[in-house]
Design a protein around this nucleic acid. Structure first.
Length: 464
RNA sequence: GGCUCGGUGGCAGAGUGGUUAUGCAGCGGAUUGCAAAUCCGUCUACGGCGGUUCGAUUCCGUUCCGAGCCUCCA
């Protein structure tokens, strides 16, 4: 097996992935804050890391994948006040919706999907330890992480504190010793959810949950820590700082995660999809129009680190690609393949592309080339092609729900009987060379939303 | 101001020091009653300017342009 290369955001370069334990690869990726419907950006993160996990599972005997859900946070509180529901019912609702939508995109559930509120005790213990060891301080009801206590702060995002301050928009709160200090524990107002703690009634800051849950579930160091690029700073930087100080590994920035991976943004009209710009696209809205695989492949159409411009063109292109391969798979459905991955030159090439930091476009170009003259190939070659398509499909997470690329919600209730009668009538008319009548039948079917294709073996139809 | 990352043909998107992917769309052809589908063939490209080189889209320098982070965000 060749080596897996991944781009490590800590080193800012592509490196050979060398597992800490080849018998169990451990990965943590930051999931969403659930106070609204999942958007395309959430989906990109989920799909990218799901694809990485699929590849790792192909390469290694065991992979443990953790991806959290943030279910306590200021925005959640704000939204629950607005909708006059409890934070629990709000986050329950949207975490279910998130999981449902991701399932539609063939995203496999993580092995663990911890929620912040399930780890409050552990967070309190961790914060107490940081405070006791002077990495954090108590100030005006808040426990703050003291950035000055960790001299490697900024290593992940290549930032130096002083240079950030000039153009910085960071608010210097009165309870901060240093502008970059961040909240580990904050006091809750009377109408806000709270947990009892040594610092009074309050709730944890955002950056603590991931570090605590990753440490608790995976143990440190683990192999890969991932998430969206916007989390690199400050979220991941802050997780790293807490973890290094917590474990006493002040000089070892790999003591938390060995590698860091970040996926790029989804853009709309070349601008970042973001809440403040109001150009958020929701997964559920696209699931009304497209099959989940179309959306998934669209999300993988650009390399995971590049920006991905979300557009109808991308979706249409993905749909066409899926239709093409589904047709080929359909034509090859009676071929029985013998799993012979190591001998299959197409797979060897595809594997090489995937092992190069998930170069899916390259992998597809190899597949496209192999398929190009499929009609001229003999049976053995066709078996290799089929095996290769299924191989790539498995890693990329497509070609699972075949035949039907229309959204299931978009289905019309068609009268099968009527369709068959019309097709029969049309074929009779064709036999009699009454093409005018034949075309009438076809137009009638079209108005019903049925498109027909004449094949040597008979007339086929599909929904449009 | 600091720190990242990009600029490839109509669009999407890989890659490489010389033989210039791939897909979608387009065009031409085969096929078809006409279509559709399929198959075959085919045109457009590497931001600007310098440099290194026999040769650069690929390396180096410089410049212009764009995106992102430094505030919640996947």
């Amino acid at each position: 097996m060749s080596k897996l290369y991944i781009y490590d955001s800590m080193q800012n370069k592509k490196v050979v992935f060398e597992p800490l334990d080849t018998q169990n690869i451990r990965v943590y990726a930051c999931g969403p804050t659930v106070y609204d419907y999942a958007h395309i950006g959430n989906a990109r993160m989920a799909v990218v890391f799901d694809t990485l996990i699929r590849l790792l599972r192909y390469l290694f005997p065991k992979v443990t994948y953790v991806s959290n859900i943030t279910d306590i946070d200021d925005k959640i509180i704000e939204r629950s006040n607005l909708e006059k529901v409890s934070t629990e019912s709000l986050t329950n609702k949207f975490s279910k919706i998130y999981n449902r939508d991701m399932k539609m995109l063939n995203v496999q559930e993580p092995d663990y999907q911890p929620k912040a509120t399930e780890y409050i005790d552990e967070m309190i213990q961790a914060i107490a330890k940081l405070e006791k060891e002077k990495y954090a301080y108590f100030s005006d009801g808040h426990v703050m992480f003291n950035v000055n206590s960790f001299k490697s702060y900024g290593a992940l995002s290549s930032r130096k504190q002083q240079e950030q301050i000039a153009g910085s928009r960071v608010k210097v709160s009165s309870y901060k010793k240093n502008p970059e200090d961040f909240v580990l524990w904050k006091p809750s107002k009377d109408n806000e959810p709270f947990w009892k703690s040594p610092w009074g009634r309050g709730r944890p800051g955002w950056h603590t949950e991931c570090f605590v849950m990753a440490t608790k579930i995976l143990g440190t160091p683990f192999d890969i820590h991932g998430g969206g690029l916007d989390l690199k700073f400050p979220h991941h930087e802050n997780e790293l700082a807490q973890s290094c100080c917590f474990s006493g590994n002040l000089d070892n920035k790999k003591s938390y995660a060995k590698y860091w991976m970040h996926n790029g943004f989804v853009t709309v009209d070349a601008e970042k999809m973001s809440k403040s710009l109001g150009n958020i696209k929701l997964v559920k809205d696209y699931l009304n129009i497209y099959n989940g695989e179309v959306i998934r492949l669209s999300l993988l159409s650009a390399h995971y680190r590049s920006p991905l411009n979300w557009s109808e063109e991308v979706l249409l292109q993905s749909k066409n690609i899926l239709m093409k391969y589904n047709k080929i798979l359909d034509a090859l459905k009676n071929l029985v393949i013998i799993k012979n991955t190591k001998e299959n030159k197409i797979i060897i090439e595809i594997e090489k592309a995937l092992l190069d930091d998930l170069n899916i476009s390259k992998a597809f170009s190899i597949l496209d080339a192999s398929v190009k003259e499929i009609n001229k190939k003999n049976e053995i070659e066709k078996k290799y092609i089929k095996e290769a398509i299924e191989f790539l499909g498995e890693i990329v997470g497509i070609f699972i729900a075949r035949d039907d690329l229309a959204s299931s919600k978009n289905k019309k209730n068609l009268n099968l009987n009527e369709i068959n009668i019309l097709i029969k009538k049309r074929n009779e008319a064709r036999k009699n060379k009454d093409y005018k009548l034949a075309d009438e039948m076809r137009n009638k079917l079209l108005t019903m939303g049925v498109e027909i294709e004449d094949h040597p073996e008979g007339t086929k139809w599909k929904e449009i």
